[in-house]
Each structure stands twice: as C-alpha cells, then as structure tokens.
Amino acid sequence: MKKRKNDIMLVAAIGFIALLLWLIIYITRSEGAFVRVTVDGGEYGTYPLDADAEIFIRGDGAYNILVIKDGEAAVLDASCPDKLCMHQGKIRYDGQSIICLPNKVVVEIVGGGQSEYDAVTR
C-alpha cells in the first residue's frame, strides 16, 4: 500500500537525521578538563578530570556521590528516589552532563575545548 511506503520513508528519514546529528556531535566533541558541580543553580565546586577523586555532594537533605576515575566522571550513589543520575553513565567529553532533577544537581564537563557557552559564562 502507498501509505505504508510513505510511513516507512518518514521513519527512515527521522532515523537518518538522528544518525546524522549523533555523528555531528560525535565528530565535534572534545575531551573536557574539569567537572563542574552545580546545586540548585549555585556552583558547588569544580574538580580536575585527571585526578581520581570521590566527592560527596551535600544538598538540602539530599546527597549524590560523584566519582572521578580514569578521566571519567559518574554518579556512584544518590539519595533521590529515581536514581536516574546513577544510570546516566560515565561522562568525559566537553558539554556532557549528568542531571539529578530531584536533588537539583548538575554535573557537567567543562574546559578542554573551545565551547562558546563557557566563553560566555566565564
């Protein structure tokens, strides 16, 4: 049927765009130098990616444990109910982030590359 063909074309086009976008992000990414932690919009601390560390992020009656190991950052444990931040995996490239909405914690990789966003905020 003609409609089915159009449906398949549409889905294929979306898949292609997703792939292209992913490819662009993959190619243009650069390794970050620092991990910046923000709690409820305020800066909590910035830590170098090349030094292994375990950081206890204390929020308003909540906590997240951030681990930096082998140039990668990940959330090891958190007090939030959904644990989404723990499932977001390891981050190492400029601009990547781990977001814990319930605790209002944002962990992001900064520096290294020449991100326009950082140029504005600094």
Partner: peptide
C-alpha cells in the same frame, strides 16, 4: 538557557519514533 540539551536529541528522536510507531 543551555544548548547542551541538544546532546539528548539523537536518542530522543529514535525513542520518539519507536514509541510513536
């Protein structure tokens, strides 16, 4: 006020398509 969320877009395009189908 962040452009960084664009990193989520490829995954969301695929998941949105599958769920939508």
């Amino acid at each position: 006020e962040t452009k960084r969320l664009i990193y989520y877009l490829p995954v969301l395009l695929i998941s949105g398509t599958i769920a939508g189908i």
